[in-house]
């Protein structure tokens, strides 16, 4: 929300209409769509906090599960996003993507490099049983 003071356009997306409803109620422009499929570039900054936990049989199949589990390796959703990212970024733009040490972060980094991004770890912090990692992606 602070971004709205400095950027000309700020827009948030979520596949869950309850989430976009909440964002709009808080004064953030919101679009219900899968990842960023309903948006076109060019954006200077893209921030993505995907569902990043590996999907297991123990996690229930409901909306909360969809918000937490990012596929078998935990990074499939993030990978789908990274595949689509070149279309969305301005030449000077960059993206931040959140991942968990429980997911296959190396695989996600590899996918991003293959798509032409320079990848570095912008932040890493220990939370209870996992490391939360923020990857910074810049077009090469």
């Amino acid at each position: 929300m602070n971004l709205q003071e400095s950027a000309s356009t700020v827009v948030g997306t979520d596949v869950n209409p309850a989430a976009t409803r909440r964002a709009r109620d808080r004064g953030v422009e919101a679009v219900t769509t899968d990842l960023a499929h309903g948006l076109k570039g060019e954006f200077d900054l893209v921030v993505f906090n995907p569902p990043y936990l590996p999907d297991t049989d123990e996690t229930p199949d409901d909306a909360l599960d969809a918000a937490l589990a990012g596929g078998e390796s935990g990074v499939e959703t993030a990978e789908r996003f990274v595949e689509d990212l070149p279309r969305l970024l301005s030449p000077e733009g960059s993206a931040f993507v959140v991942a968990s040490s429980h997911g296959d972060v190396d695989r996600l980094k590899k996918t991003a490099r293959k798509k032409g991004f320079v990848v570095d770890v912008a932040a890493r912090d220990r939370f209870f049983f996992e490391d939360i990692v923020v990857l910074h992606l810049e077009p090469r």
Partner: peptide
Amino acid sequence: DGIPDLLP
């Protein structure tokens, strides 16, 4: 209600 639904 102000929100575009761009789900396929």
